[in-house]
């Protein structure tokens, strides 16, 4: 499970304001202003992207904008780092998938 930590014995209690946004067309909720990476994880979504070359799943790695593993498409704009992008109400977020192989054809991946 990847629940939110509402009560923390040292940091106290939080009550995040949840807003709806879209993930691959489906409406889910995130806390406004938190990172997309955190919001997706709170919804149990670990696979943020499928690798361009082989379609293998990729998720959060560094969580501070350095590794670029968490790239997603936000409101049509590709390659936005989910860990650096704050959740906004009504945002449209999509997972990126493997790319067609330009030399060998669509279904030949190496």
């Amino acid at each position: 499970m990847t629940d939110r930590i509402m009560n923390h014995k040292i940091l106290g209690t939080i009550q995040p304001e949840l807003v709806p946004f879209r993930w691959n067309g489906e409406i889910i909720h995130g806390a406004e202003g938190e990172s997309l990476a955190a919001a997706l994880l709170a919804n149990g979504i670990r696979t943020l992207r499928r690798h361009e070359k082989d379609g293998k799943p990729r998720g959060i790695y560094c969580n501070i904008g350095h590794c670029s593993e968490c790239r997603v498409t936000v409101n049509g704009e590709r390659n936005q780092r989910a860990c650096l992008t704050p959740v906004e109400k009504g945002m449209d977020v999509e997972q990126q998938t493997e790319l067609p192989h330009l030399v060998k054809g669509d279904d030949a991946h190496v």
Binding site: M1, E34, A42, P57, R58, G59, C62
Partner: peptide
């Protein structure tokens, strides 16, 4: 590179800042 593998810092930010396990 599997989802679920992250730096300790990533886990720290998730846990204490984002408050997501």
């Amino acid at each position: 590179d599997l989802p679920g593998v992250m730096t300790v810092g990533a886990a720290q930010v998730l846990t204490n800042f984002s408050r997501v396990r």
